[in-house]
Amino acid sequence: MTTPSKNLMLLGTRKGLFIFELDGNSTWQFRSHTHIGIPIAYAMLDHRSGILWACQDHGHWGQKLVRSRDLGETWEEVTAPAYPDGEQIINSFATGGKTEKKPATLRYLWCMAEGGDDRPDRLFIGTEPGGLFVSEDGGDSWSLVRGLWDHPSRTEGNWFGGGRDDAGIHSIIIDPNDSARILIGVSCAGVFESTDDGTTWNPRNTGLRADFLPNPDAEVGQDPHLVVMCPSHTDALWQQNHCGIFRSTDGRQDLAGRRRT
């Protein structure tokens, strides 16, 4: 279907999802308010399929994933990602200085991303407590991206919560020129990149600052709030954190750019 994605504005709020549409006079017109009273952590229109997605953050009933094939007129709930049995959150910065381990369960569906134009059925979801999930069947089923979850920086306990209790993935970028290249932002851990479809990952935090850490230049432990790529110049990345706004113009090796003061 043809999707008027540039003419739609999706607003996920604590009171539900609002959709506005741009009319011929360049005025935003209210279109719908759905999921009334339910916090919407993230909403996305998949421009490949025309499917609208929303991540619900129920206070009591957990995290739910819903989709609409008619731009929000009707919705269906699909099975949300789940952490496999036995997976653990490992935090070496827990109170008391001891490494804390606790069962990993889905706490938040923080962001979603399309998997690339050449992978029309691939979707990603970033979650708290730090798991990246991938679907290869248009969102009907999800699996944990093991290469990231098993990264030594996480299993050694160097991921931890920032604004939320545990580490979470809030940014997912797929290179529009190479869908095997994936960048994510983790709060707190930093920016990670895979160039092999998510099999292996490397931190990309050189040049970032975290003034609140004992080592402000730590490779892992940064607290990006958002990471974005310039869609027309994919070597340009932007990252914002407590300490400023940073950019990288070499696309991958570092975010050394400069600090905005």
């Binding site: 129920h58 739910k64 099975t79 069962p103 369960t105 889905l106």
Partner: peptide
């Protein structure tokens, strides 16, 4: 169908506020 996921988490434990 689907009701259990509202009551229990990934590992089958009762959700915190249920």
């Amino acid at each position: 169908p689907g009701l259990a996921a509202y009551l229990v988490d990934d590992r089958g434990a009762l959700r915190q506020h249920v």
